[in-house]
């Protein structure tokens, strides 16, 4: 028996919000994936828009490389507003 391809499902819960990953499912093509996603992940009006992406097309960063990937941001505290010393009486900034 051949497995149907695996798809990742993303749901936008309402206009103005990002699509968010909710899980995966199996389907033969994109049309079936959307229909199945509707039945599996939005039985109680959880969404107004669906994205399905075949799982093999998702490329992810590796947890073992987290250090190299994220370290460069750790020592750049000057990217945050609180790095800058301003007087307390200063307003609207």
């Amino acid at each position: 028996m051949k497995n149907w391809p695996l798809w990742e499902v993303f749901v936008r819960s309402k206009q103005g919000l990002h699509h968010k990953h909710v899980g995966s499912l199996h389907a033969t093509d994109e049309k079936m994936a959307i229909e199945n996603a509707r039945d599996v992940y939005t039985r109680r009006s959880e969404g107004v828009s669906l994205w399905v992406v075949e799982s093999k097309h998702i490329h992810a960063s590796s947890p073992s490389e987290s250090a190299e990937l994220y370290d460069p941001a750790n020592d750049k505290i000057y990217r945050h507003p609180t790095f800058y010393d301003l007087p307390d009486e200063l307003e609207h900034i």
Binding site: M1, N3, L6, G23, S24, L25, H26, D39, V40, R43
Partner: peptide, 22 residues
């Protein structure tokens, strides 16, 4: 119908551990 859905959420979670649905 929900029970079917719950089974599918769980199979999907299980597959993230590197086992196929079949």
């Amino acid at each position: 119908q929900d029970e079917a859905g719950h089974g599918l959420y769980l199979y999907s979670a299980c597959e993230t551990l590197g086992i196929e649905r079949d």
